[in-house]
């Protein structure tokens, strides 16, 4: 199996997850708007500095690795599919609106 066919297959999976999430998000948004329930104004105090630092270091390492072996040139394309999948996943982490 070539890298290209793996990327296409994973791309289809990421797209499916994204679209499923988008559809859920759209239904949620309309249901919430119709319910007219007031949204709470609390902003959580979670600190994200460690996660942010990890993502910065990880991205730097991914770029640096492309200078060590040609295999790592393909890391970017695989990771960008992760971006699409994670965006889809984000919709499923939302609280479902009451209908």
């Amino acid at each position: 199996m070539t890298v290209y066919s793996i990327i296409v297959a994973l791309g289809v999976v990421a797209t499916a997850l994204f679209i499923a999430g988008f559809a859920r998000g759209l239904r949620n948004a309309i249901a919430e708007y119709r319910s007219a329930q007031p949204e709470p104004n609390e902003v959580p105090s979670d600190t994200f500095s460690v996660t942010a630092a990890i993502s910065v270091v990880a991205s730097s390492i991914v770029i640096a690795l492309a200078g060590f072996s040609p295999k790592f040139i393909y890391l970017g394309p695989f990771l960008v599919l992760g971006t699409a999948a994670a965006c889809g996943l984000a919709f499923f982490l939302e609280k479902r609106a009451k209908r």
């Binding site: 290209y4 296409v8 791309g11 990421a14 797209t15 994204f18 394309p77 695989f78 960008v80 699409a84």
Partner: peptide
């Protein structure tokens, strides 16, 4: 995202 991955590969 998805097209970028496919096109680059």
């Amino acid at each position: 995202t998805v097209p970028a991955a496919i096109v680059v590969v």
